[in-house]
Design a protein around this nucleic acid. Structure first.
Length: 279
DNA sequence: TTAGGCCTGCAC
DNA sequence: GTGCAGGCCTAA
């Protein structure tokens, strides 16, 4: 399930491999994976890939002459660099061939992801960022959370909301909350400014640590060069209900928050502990 | 604010 | 065979 570090790892692979390349052809295998085509995807042929930006979990591919493609990997999406367009992996929906015999295979078994096409970068940003996505989690500052003083929401639902912070998902939220010793059902309004600053720090620490290890591969995730991320073995709580907390030894506990599996240390993250200084 | 739907592979 | 995993959008 690609979250910010996984999407950023893919972006870096792509920047290494295809930046500045001209698109030679586009092959659509499953048309319904193209969620929006203000510009027909076939018209990418002949354009040059100028840059790839990321905001949250979404990539923005900018072309010249002007065109913009945005991609979201959903839960099981992959972008794989392959030397051929002939070998089609299972659940491949689109193949973009670029000069130098490089072929980008977009696959996604569960099809929660998608591809969107726009005539300009401004159109893509208007459709996907303005009013829809908050600050990118790697650029988060404590002042971005100052409105929490007046909000009635709880911590984990608020962190899952991409309008608040873009890029976080179930894994890194559980990890950051554990690191900050905060309970996922804590009301956000009850956090002190010190706790908010600490949380911001923990979120960025977790994301940057994962990025250094190429992200987290639980089962599906691979980067564009088909490498697994190795951060899974460093996770403190996600998927570890019943195991001892590595900080205090207490058994980690699983709970359900907004229909999402959630793991906490009942001792470190007791709600009475709110605002306690993190490790 | 919360539940349901989308979709598939895999564990049980 | 059943149920679960989950990002994100829509609808109640």
């Amino acid at each position: 399930m690609p979250e910010l570090p996984e999407v950023e790892s893919v972006r870096r692979n792509l920047m290494d491999s295809v930046l500045g390349c001209r698109i030679e052809s586009v092959r659509v295998v499953r048309a319904d994976y193209l969620r929006h085509q203000a510009l027909p995807v076939s018209q990418l042929a002949g354009r040059k890939l100028c840059s790839i930006d990321r905001h949250g979990k979404r990539l923005f591919w900018y072309f010249a002459p002007a065109a913009c493609m945005t991609t979201h990997l959903g839960m099981s999406g992959r972008i794989t660099l392959l030397p051929s367009s002939e070998i089609i992996l299972a659940h491949t929906h689109l193949i973009i061939s670029v000069e130098g015999s490089i072929h980008l295979h977009f696959s996604d078994p569960r099809r929660f992801g998608g591809i969107w096409l726009y005539a300009s970068g401004e159109d893509a940003v208007r459709a996907h960022i303005h009013g829809r996505m908050g600050v990118d989690a790697l650029n988060l500052r404590p002042e971005d959370l100052s409105s929490w003083r007046r909000k009635k929401t709880r911590l984990k639902p608020e962190l899952l909301n991409q309008k608040t912070i873009a890029g976080l998902g179930n894994i890194y939220i559980d990890e950051a909350l554990w690191m900050a010793r905060l309970h996922p059902l804590q009301k956000v309004s009850r956090l002190s400014s010190g706790s908010r600053a600490e949380l911001v720090c923990c979120i960025k620490r977790v994301l940057n640590a994962s990025l250094r290890h190429g992200g987290t591969t639980l089962r599906d995730y691979r980067d564009a060069k088909a490498n697994r991320g190795t951060f899974a073995r460093r996770l403190a709580v996600y998927g570890k209900a019943g195991k001892p907390c590595r900080r205090c030894g207490e058994a980690l506990r699983g709970l359900l928050v907004m229909q999402r599996s959630t793991v906490i240390c009942p001792k470190c993250q007791s709600r009475k502990n709110q605002g306690a200084k993190a490790q």
